[in-house]
Amino acid sequence: MKIYIYGIIDFNDNLNNSIKGLGDRYVYNIPYQDIGVVVSNLPEQVLGKIDSDYVIEHEKVLESLMEGFSVLPMRFLTVFDTKENLISMVRYYYNDFKNNLDRLYGKVELGVKVIWPGESIRENIINLYAGNSQKIRISGNSQAMDYVTDKFQEYKTDKAFEEEANSRIKDIDRFFNNFVVEKRLEKLKSQNLLLNASYLVEKEKQEDFKEAFEHLRNVPGNFKYLLSGPWPPYNFVLLSKKSHTFNNLDKTDIFDRILNTKT
């Protein structure tokens, strides 16, 4: 029997609600000092069958916990062999867990994604430079010079494309600035995915945030917008201690956005 972890909470007693987790097993709290690790038992045969569909089950447990506690979400598929190993992990990270629980108390994560017409914007930039080709023509006409000219044109195009992206992201981010405590902005994860943003928002400001999203969505243009959440603060857990390898713990950082987890 393994122990499957969902998250760390700011509560060190038994959970009142009956929450079912992976493999239909009840979730319970393992206290350590003034915090708790929310887990369920996981038979090895279930562990062998777990695939990405179980991400939803993991997320449902976290969602239930968020209703009553501050939650540090654990990476999907974090499993320990024994309670002793688990406690040794919590002992190692205790100060980090405590600091994060205090910092993230009463806050949730909201996600905003924005698609822009990246291909046509790049095309416009290329045409603009093509019209001004003499400006970026490098003197000389050897093969090496032609090569540098081509590379330089690509470089200028990329630079202009990034500048355009930065400027648009700044405009979008302005809509949310008044309502957020912290943010993580990822630019151009693909040519068209202009922005993949995570915002840390106080629970009582969620509605203001959503209203700001509606304003943004109504701005005329051909951008596409997506709002998701509230999530537990996946992107805002900061660990001062280096990731440590425990017997059965994944060797990477124990916190991760579960949707990025490959099984």
Partner: peptide, 25 residues
């Protein structure tokens, strides 16, 4: 128990496509 997350968008298919592209790299 069900997921109560809000996902608001007019273009779900576009976002799925772009996220898949981002994942594949």
């Amino acid at each position: 128990m069900s997921l109560n997350k809000i996902v608001e968008t007019d273009s779900p298919a576009n976002f799925i496509e772009e996220m898949e592209k981002a994942q594949s790299i």
